[in-house]
Amino acid sequence: MSIMKIENLEAKIGDKNILKGLNLELEAGKVHAIMGPNGAGKSTLSKTIVGHYDVEITGGDITYKGKSIKDMEPEERALEGIFLSFQHPVEIPGVNNAYFLRTALNAKLKYEGKEELNAAEFLRAMKKHLEMLGMKSDMISRSLNEGFSGGEKKRNEILQMLILEPEVIILDEIDSGLDIDALRQVSEGINKMKDGKRTFLVITHYSRILDYIEPDYIHVLKDGKVIKTAGPELVPYLEEHGYDGIKED
């Protein structure tokens, strides 16, 4: 069953056309990996899905659970269960990380008509996540991402994913800049969310992370289009031959 369908998507940033008739279908409960050369439009695709202000859709459509999300506000997409772990998470000085995380969670609980958590309940619920991700507790008492190392920022993104329990999870180069331990912890976090219902879109340049979070499908994105979809057996081929030799489907 497909949970998200992207059809003939055309999008630009400024005057530059980046997505040029992109087709992609995400099957519910599966792990989809997207690989492709620098500048192919992978991050642009993820930004388009979450409604980033940089991107202007000039053609095609994105449907999620059967409904077009093209005109939805970013916060509504999030509340409906779409999550993007950013390639470059922003730093927000002056906003306490724990306060931010709780505000985000409570926005979601409220949207779902559930009871919101107070600060103490929230901190209790956080503890196990922090341990699993190897995050020191001072990381959540600091300002959001401010002065975090690259790896700490990525862990904080995964922490948000664990807290918000989204249905479609887009990970834009979650593995870049991670050391081996961090890669393992982050992968563990991701695998914890794999329950056969949640859907993953993993953007990466390396096969390393795919060893941990076994993908079901590999899509090759090049020059604004998905040019090939295959099973995980494509990964070693790409490692060896690069993207140039790929024949379009």
Partner: peptide, 26 residues
Amino acid sequence: DEKQLFYLQSRGISYLEARKILVIAF
């Protein structure tokens, strides 16, 4: 900062709340 506003919104926080959070942070 637009980027900061968007980051908060992308986590389900409304535009109004996101603005408030950033104004208060300042």
